[in-house]
Design a protein around this nucleic acid. Structure first.
Lengths: 189, 189
DNA sequence: TCACATATGTTGATTAATAAACAAAATAGA
DNA sequence: TCTATTTTGTTTATTAATCAACATATGTGA
């Protein structure tokens, strides 16, 4: 792909993210974004229909990065599971400002919704029902794990990360391991 | 001016400067520069005839920044003189890696030469001969101050900045003040 | 309420940057 | 030394980004 496209998109996304940290979404203008990104205003419109489209694509991009961080690298699922979980929390920690803004904003529901959808999808792909009492509905179990994980993350972020990412990874892993076969709730195929 | 031009130039300059810190000038290729700058190789050639032209423009750009840092801001020349001198040494300190590379490189004489030319020009503009014994040749005095200043800077940089920039500014200022009317040897009109 | 400023979204002409391909020169490496 | 690879410099068609100029909409303060 033409490298100009990637460069412009990146500059616009970065500018938008930066502004999101400084002020409320409602106060952000396309003009500001273009100015900070150092691109022509028309360039913004050539990539995004409006500021809501930009917001959604920005959310998508950040969540993609988040879920990319959860991919287990090694072959041994239990060890790599802990490692990648730890990486995930570290990533969250480094971008905590952004994520807490997104989670705390009243006007932005798109973020939580999208996060939930992705989490459900991820758990669905990872959840192994072998050895689990068959009278437990799988769909419900998926929702259960997804919500549980998001809940922990959300609590951790919005409460200014009271524990280290390592500790959080351990805790979450230990909770998950009680259902033996769910080792990578955040990972995606 | 079209902002694309500025962006490309900046990216290329930054990449080149970065590479200068890592390896010898002779080992740097246009390919590398383009790759690191994330621009098409043709873009490099559209701005610079060859790598020597790039080197010279890079030197020019860095020295411009250096001399911009010496412009006295306030009206009171003696106080602002010390302030701007201090700023200058601070700037040098922050970019010490680059400047020491430039000063120590055997293959690059262009840098020292250009620095000397600019310094002479600067002193020429600043040197006030009032009250100075008229049997001192002004041209010679200019050369004298320019060389003295460069010598101090060069020694400070190549010896890993053994004193703080504040201390250096004080010392240099005190040396200059012995000739009362030379308060801004680094400044340019 | 009215006027004034600022933001939005669109258009069209122009230009810088791009990718790809090329021959020639320089530089390993064997 | 000969060969393979990399680098250099240039060219061409294509495209994304730019600027400037719009009309319209949305505030904001007097």
């Amino acid at each position: 792909m033409d490298r100009r496209i990637e460069k412009s998109r990146q500059a616009i996304m970065d500018a938008f993210t930066k502004l999101m940290l400084e002020k409320d979404f409602e106060k952000i203008t396309i003009n500001e974004i273009a100015e900070l990104a150092n691109v022509n205003r028309g360039t913004v419109y050539s990539h995004y229909v409006d500021i809501f489209d930009l917001l959604n694509q920005c959310i998508e991009s950040h969540l993609n990065k988040l879920f990319e961080n959860c991919q287990p690298r090694g072959s041994d699922s239990s060890i790599s599971g802990k490692d990648s979980l730890c990486k995930t929390f570290n990533y969250l920690e480094q971008n905590a400002f952004f994520y807490s803004k997104m989670l705390m904003s009243k006007s932005i529901t798109a973020f939580r919704n999208r996060l939930h959808v992705l989490m459900v999808k991820s758990v669905e792909e990872q959840l192994d029902m072998n050895g689990i009492n068959t009278d437990v509905n799988r769909q419900i179990m998926v929702q259960y794990f997804a919500s549980a994980t998001i809940g922990v993350i959300e609590w951790w972020i919005t409460n200014s990360m009271p524990y280290s990412s390592e500790y959080m990874a351990e805790q979450l892993l230990s909770l998950m391991e009680r259902y033996q076969n769910v080792t990578e709730p955040l990972a995606r195929r």
